[in-house]
Design a protein around this nucleic acid. Structure first.
Length: 476
DNA sequence: TTTTGAGTTGTTCGA
DNA sequence: GTCGAACAACTCAAA
C-alpha cells in the first residue's frame, strides 16, 4: 500500500468548493500537497499584469488560510512549472498529481507535454474541467466546423446539459508528515511599491468567500433586474463576478446553480445574465479553435487596416484625458479600481480603435495590465468584437458615439461626475459634451476647457468619417 | 450547391 | 426633444 502524497496543482481554480482536482486527490486517500507555481516565463507575452498580481496575492493568501483551517496549507514555488513540479515530486516522493485544466493556447501546450512526461515517469496524472460549462473541443456546427457566431453557438449549448458543481469533501484533506519548503507571498512582491493598490483593495474582497458572497447577493437581489440595469454604469447592476471567475474563486457551474431556480421560472434577467456567462464560454471556445487571435485578427482582411499609431493619443486615452467625459470616466475608473463597467468598456474600446485609429492590440495590452479581471479569452474576444475583425455578427463598421452613449446610459451624469471630478458641478444636460455648454454654465461649474479639463482630442464627426474611410480601404 | 434568414450591446437624419 | 426609418451591406449556419 502506497502512502506517497498526491500533489494538487492550483492554477486558475483558487477555491476549495466545486474543485474536481482537489476532490480527486482527497478521494485517493493519501496525504495532499497543495501547490501554486508562479511561472510568468510559461505565459509567453501574456505575463500577468500589475492588477492581476495584486489580486493573485490576496487570492493566494486567502486560499492558504482556508487550507490551513483544514489542517493543510498552500506551498508556493516560482519558476517554470515543469521543472518545479519535477523537483517537488522528487523532494516529496509524490506519485500522483491532479489539476484543473486551463484553456489558453500556451497553457494547453505546456500541460499536454507535461502530462505525457509525468505519465512516462510513472505518475498518476488527473486533469479536470473546473472552469468551463462546455469543453471547447467538443462543440461544432452541423458542418463540423467551429461556430463563429455567438447566437447559434449558445443555442446549441443550451440544447445540451450543463455540468453541476461537484462536492469537495475538504474536511478529509490529509496533511503529509512533513511539508516541503515554500516561498512566501511577501518575497514574491506582488503588492506594488507605489500604493495604487489601496483603493482596489477597498473596492474588492478578493477571497473565495468574497466571490461566493457576491454571487449570492447578485442572484438574490440583482439578477432579475439584470436586463434593465446592466447597461447603466452609475448603478450596481452588473454581477462584478468577472475577477472571481477569472481566478477560479467561483466556477461557472456554481454561477449556473445559483440562478437555476430563477431560470426554471422563466426569469428574463437571469436568462440574459447566463448568456453573458455564455459569452465567456464563447471566448474560450474561440481561443481554443483560433489560438492566433490573441495577437492577430480573426478576419485576415484586417491585417491591412490603416492604423495611425500615435503615442500621444494612446497616452491620452490611457490617462482618461481625451476630452470625452464618458471615455475619460471609464479609463479613470479602470485606473483607480482595476475594473470598468461593461457598457463603458465598449465605448472606450470603440473610441480608441475608431476615433483614434489605434490598433486594438494596444488597447488589449492596456486592459491586460490594468484590469483585475484580465482574462485572455474575454479580452481577446471583446477587443476583436469592438474592432469588427473577430467573430462578429455586424455586417458594417460599428462606431459608438461617446456623447449619445453617455446621454443614453448615464442620463444624470452620475457616472461621469464620480470619475471625472472636474466635471462634477456640470449640469447633466451638458456633462457629456461640455464644449457645447454656454460660457456661463462652464464658469458656474468651474470648468475651464483646455485648462482644467481637456477639449476633445478629435472631433467626433471628423473622426467617424476618417474611420469609415479607413474601413473602406480594407474592403473588397 | 445554392439559397435564405439572421446576426449582443448603433447612429444619423428628417418629420 | 422624440420617434421611426434608413443606413450599414458581410458572412455564417442551416435548410
Amino acid at each position: 500500500m502506497s502512502s506517497a502524497p498526491s500533489i494538487v496543482w492550483f492554477r486558475q481554480d483558487l477555491r476549495i468548493d466545486d474543485q474536481p482536482a482537489l476532490k480527486a486527490a482527497i478521494q485517493r486517500g493519501e496525504p495532499i500537497i497543495p501547490v501554486y507555481i508562479h511561472s510568468p516565463e510559461d505565459e509567453g507575452e501574456w505575463t500577468p499584469g500589475g492588477a492581476t498580481l495584486l489580486w493573485l496575492h490576496h487570492a493566494l493568501a486567502s486560499l492558504d488560510e482556508t487550507l490551513r483551517s483544514h489542517g493543510s496549507r498552500l506551498i508556493l514555488r516560482s519558476g517554470p512549472a515543469s521543472r518545479i513540479l519535477k523537483d517537488l515530486i522528487k523532494e516529496t516522493g509524490s506519485d500522483a498529481i491532479f489539476w484543473n485544466r486551463r484553456y489558453e493556447p500556451r497553457a494547453i501546450e505546456r500541460d499536454q507535454t507535461l502530462k505525457s512526461q509525468l505519465k512516462e515517469d510513472g505518475l498518476e496524472v488527473g486533469s479536470f474541467n473546473g472552469s468551463l460549462l462546455i469543453e471547447p473541443g467538443k462543440v461544432f456546427n452541423k458542418s463540423g466546423t467551429p461556430f463563429k457566431v455567438f447566437t447559434p453557438f449558445w443555442k446549441h449549448c443550451l440544447g445540451g446539459t450543463f455540468p453541476k458543481p461537484v462536492a469537495t469533501p475538504i474536511k478529509d484533506i490529509k496533511a503529509p508528515s512533513s511539508w516541503p519548503k515554500s516561498e512566501t507571498l511577501d518575497a514574491w512582491d506582488f503588492i506594488p511599491s507605489i500604493p495604487w493598490n489601496k483603493p482596489i483593495e477597498k473596492a474588492w474582497d478578493m477571497t473565495e468567500a468574497g466571490g461566493q458572497k457576491r454571487l449570492k447577493s447578485f442572484s438574490r437581489n440583482s439578477a432579475s433586474r439584470y436586463k434593465e440595469r446592466r447597461d447603466l454604469p452609475a448603478e450596481d447592476g452588473t454581477s462584478t463576478l468577472s475577477p472571481y471567475l477569472h481566478f477560479g474563486q467561483i466556477s461557472p457551474r456554481q454561477v449556473l446553480a445559483s440562478v437555476r431556480g430563477a431560470l426554471e421560472k422563466g426569469d428574463e434577467g437571469s436568462r440574459v445574465f447566463m448568456s453573458e456567462i455564455g459569452w465567456r464560454e464563447f471566448g474560450y471556445y474561440l481561443l481554443f479553435h483560433f489560438p492566433h487571435t490573441t495577437s492577430d485578427p480573426l478576419n485576415p482582411s484586417f491585417e491591412d487596416f490603416p492604423w495611425k499609431k500615435n503615442e500621444t493619443f494612446l497616452k491620452a486615452w490611457q490617462k482618461g484625458q481625451t476630452g470625452y467625459p464618458l471615455v475619460d470616466a471609464g479609463m479613470r475608473q479602470l485606473w483607480l479600481t482595476g475594473w470598468m463597467h461593461n457598457r463603458v468598456r465598449m465605448v472606450v474600446a470603440s473610441f480608441l480603435i475608431k476615433h483614434l485609429l489605434q490598433p486594438w492590440q494596444d488597447g488589449a495590452a492596456w486592459f491586460w495590465d490594468t484590469l483585475v479581471d484580465a482574462d485572455l479569452a474575454s479580452n481577446t474576444l471583446g477587443w476583436q468584437w469592438t474592432a469588427g475583425c473577430g467573430a462578429d455578427a455586424a455586417p458594417f463598421f460599428r462606431i459608438f458615439n461617446p456623447i449619445t452613449q453617455g446621454e443614453k446610459f448615464d442620463p444624470d451624469g452620475n457616472y461621469v461626475a464620480t470619475w471625472v471630478p472636474e466635471l462634477k458641478e456640470m449640469p447633466a444636460k451638458y456633462i457629456h459634451a461640455p464644449w457645447d455648454a454656454p460660457a456661463e454654465v462652464l464658469e458656474e461649474a468651474g470648468v475651464d476647457l483646455g485648462s482644467n479639463y481637456p477639449r476633445p482630442i478629435v472631433d467626433h464627426k471628423e473622426a467617424r468619417n476618417r474611420a469609415l474611410k479607413a474601413y473602406d480601404q480594407i474592403k473588397g
